Amino acid sequence: GHYRIRINGREFEIRGISEEEIRHLEEALRNGADEKILKEIVDRLRG
Rank of each mutant, 00 (worst) to 15 (best):
L29F: 08
A33M: 10
N8T: 01
I22P: 00
R44A: 10
A33Y: 06
R30N: 10
G1A: 05
R30I: 13
A28Q: 12
G1H: 09
Y3R: 02
K36R: 12
V42W: 08
I22R: 07
I5A: 01
I22M: 07
D34E: 09
N31C: 01
R15S: 11
I7Q: 00
I7Y: 04
H2A: 14
E26W: 06
I41K: 01
E20A: 11
H2K: 06
R46Q: 15
L25K: 00
N8F: 11
A33R: 05
G47M: 07
K36Y: 12
S18E: 03
E35T: 08
K39M: 15
R46P: 09
Y3M: 04
E11C: 11
V42K: 02
R46T: 15
I7W: 07
R23W: 06
S18A: 07
I14N: 00
I41Y: 05
E40R: 03
K39F: 15
L29N: 03
R4H: 14
L29M: 14
I22N: 01
F12E: 02
N8W: 05
A33K: 06
D34K: 05
K39V: 08
S18R: 05
E26G: 04
S18L: 03
R10Y: 14
I14G: 00
R46L: 15
E11A: 03
G47Y: 05
L29H: 04
G16P: 04
A28E: 06
R44F: 14
F12W: 13
H2E: 11
I22W: 12
H2P: 09
I14L: 14
R4P: 06
G16Y: 12
L29R: 03
E27Q: 05
I5Y: 03
N8V: 01
R44L: 12
E11L: 13
L45T: 02
N31L: 09
R15P: 09
R4K: 14
L25P: 00
S18T: 14
R46C: 06
E27M: 09
G1M: 06
H24R: 11
N8H: 05
R15I: 15
E13W: 10
H2F: 13
A33H: 08
R30L: 13
A33N: 07
E21G: 08
K39L: 15
E20L: 06
I14K: 00
E13T: 11
E13P: 01
G16M: 05
Y3D: 02
I37G: 07
L45A: 02
G47K: 06
E13I: 14
